[in-house]
Design a protein around this nucleic acid. Structure first.
Length: 462
RNA sequence: GGCCCUGUGGCGGAGUGGUGACGCAGCGGAUUGCAAAUCCGUGUACCCCGGUUCGAGUCCGGGCGGGGCCUCCA
């Protein structure tokens, strides 16, 4: 079974071959930490978390090194600090913590390495010096710039030629640049900017440009050439194009062998934007929906396709998970799970992370589980339970026990409900249907659904 | 203006050229004290027009519709 990934550079699916199977490297562009993450921001971490899990399964957990950075120096962070008076380090620490907590609520495992941009300033300066020495960079009154026409294959990732960019694009206002497409490697500090965001460099005091941080962190943490580089589709140009330009011109090596990009989220059919007021924060969504519902919704479409984020999508995702957890409950037994990978979920993921097909496989397992339970086939129940849990872990769902999923919440309240359900079981045994129905109705009124089965009754919050 | 992606049943969403996944919703049946849950069954879906082919949702061309990027937005 081979892993195939769609490579943006090649514009086709390619069989994945790491440079070194004992050290598989992946880098994904992480957040700029100055506010809460919205659900669109969560798509890359979730998608690449699935890939990280898959790579770990194929090559061994310890053989994969996944880095996701924190951008903690940037214009908007500086603006936020100047406005609130809060120290930059405090702002970035706070929002990085919130980001990681939000991602954890979506069952996103922490990356193996989380480099912070400001810890890599010297590495950025070294790349800048190298580029300047080799004639790829020049100094203006505003900073150090990369000269794109010095690089023969600039634009190879996004497939755009320089002429194309200039045709109808907004014109860059910086007259100091030799070409409008030239971009900043280092920006000189301006009057009034906080000392916290200023470093010395051979060219003058200032701070790094956006693209250089990833070049430096990849070099320092993972090496000259990494296996996989990922991020949102919007980063293809200019961000990743410029990373390639800097890294490859400075080091003379290919930056990444596979480029993966996820598609955007729409909100109820519209573009998500502040002006439309339809930005949904993970932090807020998590108050109304279990994290696994949000994750299921994100994985319900293929990662490269646009995904329309709607209320209906969330409701359907919730119902689907209810069905799967319900099946898991019926085969749960004593809950001693021995992960069993004899299922089809990973095979579907091997084809460019086809999560919709993988979820279809999961539903097939749920059907098997229900059938095994109907037939009271103990061996089949045990096997399918082990497969369900393993399949879920491949996708980062089914991380709870069925009881936690269906009855999670206030323990005292659960005890009260258990008692009522037990009372109803006794009423039914006495054929006191009026009392049995009364209890069921009372529980239904507070959102508790009772499920009667051969072996007794159970309940869940709906 | 340039580059790129996309258009499948009521909804979401797969699909290697050959009797159209899967889930949600609906309908029928089984089961149930009645329900729920579950199981079984069930759907005149592939934007339009040409072309290639024995055969196209699947390839090619042209339309129409939607979306993204074109300097710091996942």
């Amino acid at each position: 079974m081979t892993l195939r990934l769609y490579d943006t550079m090649a514009r086709e699916k390619r069989v994945f071959k790491p440079q070194d199977p004992s050290r598989v490297t992946m880098y994904v562009c992480g957040p700029t930490v100055y506010n809460y993450a919205h659900i669109g921001n969560a798509r890359p971490p979730v998608v690449f978390d699935v890939l990280r899990r898959l790579l770990g399964h194929i090559y061994g957990e310890d053989a994969v090194i996944y880095a996701r950075n924190i951008t903690d120096v940037e214009d908007k962070i500086i603006a936020s600090s100047l406005e609130s008076g809060e120290a930059i380090a405090d702002i970035t620490r706070k929002y990085a913590d919130i980001y990681n907590a939000d991602m954890a609520s979506l069952n996103v495992r922490a990356p193996d390495i989380e480099p912070w941009a400001t810890k890599h300033i010297q590495g950025m300066i070294r790349i800048g010096e190298s580029l300047k020495r080799k004639g790829y960079a020049y100094v203006t009154k505003d900073g150090l710039y990369f000269q794109v026409d010095q690089m023969d294959d600039y634009g190879k990732l996004s497939g755009r030629k320089q002429e194309d960019n200039e045709a109808g694009a907004r014109v860059a206002v910086d007259e100091g640049k030799r070409n409008p497409s030239d971009f900043a490697i280092w920006k000189f500090a301006k009057e009034g900017e906080p000392e916290e965001a200023i470093w010395d460099s051979p060219w003058g005091r200032g701070r790094p440009g956006w693209h250089i941080e990833c070049s430096a962190m990849i070099k320092a943490e993972l090496g000259d050439t990494i296996d996989i580089h990922g991020g949102g589709i919007d980063l293809t140009f200019p961000h990743h194009e410029n990373e390639i330009a800097q890294s490859e011109c400075a080091h003379g090596e290919t930056l990444a062998n596979y480029w993966l990009h996820n598609g955007f989220l729409d909100m109820e059919g519209e573009k998500m934007s502040k002006s439309l007021g339809n930005v949904k924060l993970v932090h807020d969504l998590a108050k109304d929906w279990p994290g696994e519902v949000l994750r299921y919704a994100l994985l319900s479409g293929h990662y490269r396709a646009p995904l329309d984020w709607t209320r209906s999508l969330l409701e359907q995702s919730k119902t689907s998970l209810d069905r799967i957890y319900g099946a898991l409950r019926r085969v749960w037994g004593d809950g001693n799970v021995e992960p069993d990978d004899r299922h089809g979920v990973r095979a579907k993921l091997m084809d460019d992370l086809n999560t919709p097909l993988a979820l279809a496989e999961l539903h097939a397992l749920a059907s098997e589980a229900n059938k095994a339970a109907d037939e009271k086939n103990e061996r089949a129940m045990e096997t399918v339970r082990n497969m369900l849990v393993d399949a879920g872990s491949a996708l980062g769902i089914l991380s709870m026990t069925p009881a936690q999923w269906e009855q999670g919440g206030d323990d005292d309240d659960s005890a009260r409900i258990d008692a009522m359900v037990q009372a109803r079981v006794e009423a039914r045994a006495n054929k006191d249907w009026a009392e049995a129905d009364r209890i069921r109705n009372e529980l239904a009124a507070e959102g508790i659904e009772i499920m009667d089965g051969g072996g007794g009754s159970t309940w869940r919050r709906v």
